[in-house]
Structure formats: C-alpha cells, structure tokens
C-alpha cells in the first residue's frame, strides 16, 4: 500500500493535496473555528494517507471530504454533544418533504452577514449539505458519497436545510426590525 511506487500515478499528494481548500472550507463551516478546522484538516489528511490503499481512484475530492466530515462530526460530538443530534427525521420521511414556498423578498433583501449567521445556526447536518452544494458546488450524487446517505435523503435534507435557512433569516430580520424601532 506504499504510495511511493514509481510510475503509479496519481500519488497521494497529487490526488489529495489539490483538495486542501475544499477540506478546509468544509471543516471551517462545520466547526466554526479556525484553529479547530486546521487541526481537523491535518488529522483528516493523516487518516486519508493511512487509508489511501483503499482509494480506488475516481472522485478524490468526495473521498477526502468524507474523512474530513467524519473527523469534524467526531469532534463536534465530543466537544458539543448538545449540538449534534442525529437528523433521523428526513431519513424516515425522505419522500414526503415539501419544499414550501421560497420567499423571494427575504432572499433579495438579506445581507451577507445575516445569511452567514443564519447558516451558523443550523444543525451541522443541515449546514453540511448547504456548504457542499451551494459553496463547494457538489452534485447530489457527490454529496451522497461524502455524507454516506442515499440520494433521496440528500434531496430532502437539502430542501429542509434551505427552508430552515429561510426561517432563520426571517427570524433575524424580525429581530433587526424590533431593535431598529
């Protein structure tokens, strides 16, 4: 499993280090802390290196991000047990999700800082799918690989995450209006 065999590309370095920013971005959003994110990324790369013999080519970014998110969730469970509760609901009712009405006005008027705040308030599992889809640009299929959930669950979780985000934004906007008055 040594990756140093010559003429056997790609090496671990070639396959995985280009995804350093993707790894850091996910860890930074999940852990919401710079130093914690750096530590998680470093640990994830070490684990990835040890497991690289099991990497069968293909989507290197998804493979690495799976390890990153697992390291992050382990850390969240250890340090903030109250934050992490498994999101079972959407797995049970995967097919019955209702995307609801998207309030265009809310989204047009939202400020960047509010949106970031709202995203920080979501449960990590919901934040995860938003980050992977909206920021990292992953397709449903890739998110299913990273988070190890069925594609149907990716769809419903993403729909619920977007809806929750809108609810948070509306709450933040209400707060601001009240304080403004």
């Amino acid at each position: 499993m040594e990756a140093s065999v010559p003429n056997e590309p790609p090496s671990f370095e070639q396959a995985m280090l280009p995804h350093l920013d993707a790894a850091y971005n996910l860890a930074r959003w999940l852990l919401r802390h710079e130093q914690d994110a750096e530590d998680a990324v470093q640990e994830a790369f070490l684990r990835a290196y040890r497991a690289f013999g099991r990497f069968r080519g293909g989507d290197g970014r998804a493979w690495l991000l799976t390890i990153v998110r697992n390291v992050c969730f382990t850390q969240l469970r250890r340090n903030h047990p109250s934050v992490v509760r498994e999101v079972f609901e959407d797995d049970l009712h995967g097919s019955t999700f209702d995307p609801g009405e998207v309030n265009a006005l809310v989204w047009r008027e939202t400020k960047a800082a509010q949106l970031q705040l709202a995203l920080d308030k979501l449960a990590p599992e919901f934040r995860e799918v938003i980050v992977l889809h909206e920021i990292e640009g992953l397709a449903y299929r890739e998110i299913a690989l990273v988070s190890d959930i069925p594609i149907g669950t990716v769809m419903s979780r993403l729909a619920r995450a977007r809806r929750k985000l809108q609810t948070e934004l509306q709450a933040l906007a209400r707060k601001e209006t009240t304080h403004g008055l």
């Binding site: 850091y24 750096e38 990324v41 998207v102 989204w107 960047a112 949106l115 809108q166």
Partner: peptide
C-alpha cells in the same frame, strides 16, 4: 424565488481558503 435564493447564497457565503501555513503543516 429559488433563483433569488441561489444568488443570495452564492454571493453571501464565503468559501474559506486554507491559510497558507496549513499546506506546509
């Protein structure tokens, strides 16, 4: 509405880039 949401998400949410020292670490 969905397009407005996408525009908001894609313009407001930063993609954090790894600090330069992290690559070396």
């Amino acid at each position: 509405g969905i397009h407005a949401r996408r525009t908001a998400l894609q313009t407001a949410l930063p993609r954090f880039t790894a600090p330069p020292a992290l690559a070396e670490k």
